[in-house]
Design a protein around this nucleic acid. Structure first.
Length: 270
DNA sequence: ACGCAGACCTGTACGC
DNA sequence: TGCGTACAGGTCTGCG
């Protein structure tokens, strides 16, 4: 489910609750979560930071309040994962996969479809995604040229890969291409400098606005407080097939690319 | 290198 | 009500 903005919101909301807290216990209820490596002993570890790396929530732990972090956990929410903070211990919960009990508060990992993953690391370098962070202040329009050069992949599929630019998923990829007036069928390597610049600007603007609006809630995204985002009100094409295009009045189409739905306007995206 | 199918899971919406 | 099908914000593997 979540793409960059939704993961960013979860991390930002968890951070003030978790940072500086001591872990009492980590209970893993779903054995699938052990596939990313055996969980280390967490009791007594102090949470030093919670942030986002690509589409993952990253939590740094240290052996004491003054010690440097020596352990990192990345949580990938995939389609339906949620990290929910509660002040006092909630009772039974559907699809509860893991529970962190802190010296104050509880963080539950809830995941209906069980695609979510935990991975443990001993250095921060290992947690860094391969691709570029699109909201990194140093990332500029001119950098797209080298990233995209020579790719024969269609631009919609290219935007979904995480080894070039991280954080984009099926909703924002369609929205970005519509905002940039670029057809999802275009060969990535064939884009002009002007088109790449439009994609760059659209990416920054859309992700930033989505974060400001607490992300997009389609069916199940909720932030760390269980509150839904509101960026769905701003979506121009996603899930709007059959409706008129907000820019040119043409009809928004739905089409399957790489087994994922793409939404676009055939009239003003070329 | 690319596209495509299938897998991983569970739930919901919709047509008959 | 029940059953079958399609679809869902992600990503991996294997095949051609």
């Amino acid at each position: 489910m979540p793409e960059l903005p939704e993961v960013e919101i979860v991390a930002r909301q968890l951070a003030p609750h978790m940072t500086g807290r001591t872990v009492r216990t980590l209970r893993i209820h779903d054995a699938k979560l052990r596939e990313g490596g055996r969980p280390p002993r967490l009791a007594g570890q102090v949470v030093r930071s919670v942030d986002r790396a690509g589409k993952q929530v990253r939590i740094a732990f240290a052996t004491g309040r003054a010690a440097a972090p020596s352990l990192w956990l990345t949580v990938h929410l995939r389609m339906t994962g949620r990290l929910l903070w509660e002040e006092s211990s909630p009772g039974a919960r559907d699809h509860l996969r893991a529970r962190f009990t802190l010296d104050r508060g509880v963080v539950d990992f809830v995941d209906t479809r069980r695609f979510g993953t935990f991975r443990w690391y001993r250095s921060v370098e290992e947690t860094l995604p391969v691709g570029v962070e699109p909201l990194d202040p140093g990332f500029q329009a001119r950098h797209w040229k080298a990233l995209i050069a020579g790719s024969r992949q269609n631009i919609k599929s290219w935007l979904l890969r995480q080894d070039r630019v991280v954080g984009l998923g099926n909703i924002y990829a369609s929205e970005i291409l519509h905002a940039a007036r670029v057809s999802p069928h275009r060969e990535a390597g064939s884009l002009t400098a002007g088109e790449r610049a439009r994609i760059h600007r659209a990416t920054r603007r859309i992700l930033t606005t989505a974060i400001e609006n607490c992300g997009t809630t389609f069916s199940d995204f909720q932030d760390a407080r269980g509150v839904e985002g509101s960026y769905q009100e701003f979506l121009q094409v996603y899930a709007r097939d059959g409706e008129p295009c907000s820019r040119c009045g043409g009809t928004i189409l739905r089409e399957v690319q790489q087994q994922r739905s793409t939404f676009y306007c055939d009239d003003c995206q070329s």
